[in-house]
Nucleic acid binder design. Structure first.
Lengths: 217, 217
DNA sequence: AATTGGATTATACACTTGAATAATTGCAAA
DNA sequence: TTTGCAATTATTCAAGTGTATAATCCAATT
């Protein structure tokens, strides 16, 4: 029996590769199929190596969830950051970013749902989720505040809190719909619906910078 | 070795008991912990019996998901049916029903997320989901149409489609928020936010029949 | 060139998994 | 009371589980 050849990797690269393999396995085989052997196989290493980088399977899964949360959050966040100085555009692109890949993606939904489901079992996952949720809502609240001020509209903190909660809800809910049943919506439809909803919820009029969401007629 | 005593049950009762035990196990132990032995144990029978009622574990899980979908849908549906003849009240109570138990419930979220996650792996589950989703959205669209007409507001089918999508999104998203972080919201707050959102999305003014959601001040 | 130490593999282990089968039980009809 | 049969249990099986441990490889250091 000849021994398998291998080469060393930097610690970061290996960890990230294992996390990536974990996510792929969850998408392809579900939580049940995402076993250490399956994951190791996907990453091109042997199962034992996982224990060298992570204290256990739970630990690996937590790292994987962190990556998912960051991907979803950072995508929208970065979109907004491209429009410094224009609060209305910032709010608009932030909302719309949630309705393009990589955020809107059936695989992303599978990952998200898998981890949300585990939230009740692994408190560490619950913590990661909550942290991300709070950041997200604070970001929305901040965006709304700036947008309202830019439009010269008065609003109380209570208003903004309720608006942020509602906007977060619309985004989440429509994102769900889009991931689950992409074929039921025309191109850019969900983004436009989301933006319209945000306009009605806030009373603002928002610009559409992204040609992908422009209504064609 | 004495043999365990048992008594016969009607087929329906047994199947339902097994389904109930399945849901309990998923909530308590997650998908990984919901093994045939755990489930059988919870139901007070032996593992082998499951195979007598269901072709396999997959089959049992599909039945369990059907029950979840029905519970969530029927609760809101039945609330609306209590207000025959008053379209505005029907829409209102339908929306609000999603923010009371048993619909808003951390356990319900755990179940929902678990099955959604499996949707990508088991096409049968995907079918069950889609069926429920379509029914739900059609119901909303119908409720909105009647409410608009009762209020004497004109609306095109395209408007109603977009409104139904958005309303469905708000309900789903806020429901998620409420299940995941009940402690971050005051009593009845989410329901009020949802109703306000629906009002803004439709331009309607909706009555609050349910004292649970009346704002106290 | 020899040595060292961490990265990686291979193997082993104790246990759990879903499923299959055979043996029993309890009930209902005769 | 007996008999028949479906419902239920007990047992078994092969495959797969996460983890532990020891053997090996590679790269950098000396």
């Amino acid at each position: 029996m000849t021994r398998r050849s291998f080469h060393h990797e930097s610690e970061d690269a290996r960890r990230q590769a294992l996390v990536a393999a974990t996510l792929e396995c969850i998408v392809d085989f579900g939580l049940q199929g995402a076993t250490v052997r399956q994951i190791a196989d996907r990453a091109g290493v042997t199962a034992g190596l996982i224990r060298h980088y992570f204290a256990g399977k739970d630990n690996l899964f937590q790292a994987a969830y962190r990556e998912v949360v960051e991907t979803m959050f950072d995508t929208a966040q970065r979109s907004a950051d491209e429009h410094q100085g224009d609060p209305l555009a910032r709010l608009s692109v932030f909302v719309l970013a949630n309705f393009k890949p990589p955020v809107i993606d059936q695989r992303m939904l599978a990952l998200w749902a898998t981890f949300i489901a585990q939230t009740g079992v692994d408190p560490a996952l619950a913590g990661i989720h909550r942290e991300g949720y709070i950041s997200y809502r604070e970001t929305i609240e901040h965006l709304v505040k700036d947008a309202m001020e830019a439009a010269g509209k008065a609003s109380t903190p209570e208003d903004r809190r309720a608006q942020a909660i509602a906007i977060n809800g619309v985004i989440d809910g429509l994102w769900l719909e889009g991931c689950m049943a992409a074929d039921m919506f025309s191109d850019g439809e969900l983004g436009r619906i989301a933006l319209l909803a945000v306009e009605r919820l806030t009373g603002l009029t928002l610009p559409i910078e992204d040609p992908h969401f422009l209504k064609k007629d």
